[in-house]
């Protein structure tokens, strides 16, 4: 039943995906997906922000350094920003930031940004499913040997 939520055989554990979503479009789009019962993988945890332009790239860096396996930022489609131009700033910053990730020792495929409007519930389902799949294919983020196990690592539910 929960085949969409399952990661590739063997690990049986959810990965740590964090989403930074603008309130007006993408968070609404995720709501629309919920209202439409568009089933998605459950790995993603969403942080609601007023605007994708509110995202400081350091949030993403910190999130990844804290041990997240993937970060997704989503805002309004360019030209359709609730604050007129916030997502233009976001687009520029995030594009530059993506190129910086290898310098930090992070696989740039662990970070994506996208645009989803409040009406695009189905598109949100596709974005989440595709991104989750992409992160699962990369596997958990690499950890230093001997690093302490965090609580969520022990409690990771194994639905299998």
């Amino acid at each position: 039943m929960s085949d969409v939520t399952r990661e590739p055989a063997g690990t049986g554990r959810e990965l740590r995906l964090v989403g930074f979503l603008c309130n007006w479009c993408s968070y609404g789009g995720a709501d629309t997906a919920g209202v439409g019962r568009f089933i998605q993988p459950t790995d993603l945890r969403i942080v609601r922000l007023p605007c994708s332009g509110r995202v400081n790239p350091l949030f993403i860096a910190k999130t990844l350094l804290y041990g997240a396996d993937g970060v997704l930022v989503s805002g309004c489609h360019p030209r359709d920003c609730h604050y007129a131009e916030g997502n233009f700033y976001a687009r520029r910053r995030l594009e530059v930031f993506r190129h910086l990730l290898p310098t930090l020792g992070i696989d740039p495929r662990r970070f994506e940004y996208t645009w989803v409007s409040a009406s695009e519930g189905q598109r949100w389902q596709q974005v989440v499913s595709k991104f989750t799949e992409q992160i699962h294919s990369l596997g958990p983020a690499p950890r230093l040997p001997g690093a302490p196990e965090l609580e969520w690592m022990q409690s990771g539910v194994n639905p299998a």
């Binding site: 709501d31 459950t42 639905p159």
Partner: peptide, 22 residues
């Protein structure tokens, strides 16, 4: 938001419960 972002989009109760708690 444990309805639109959890209960309505995930079928697995254990995973949903974990997500809601977080």
């Amino acid at each position: 938001n444990i309805r639109e972002h959890v209960s309505w989009i995930g079928r697995d109760k254990a995973l949903n419960t974990l997500k809601a708690t977080e």
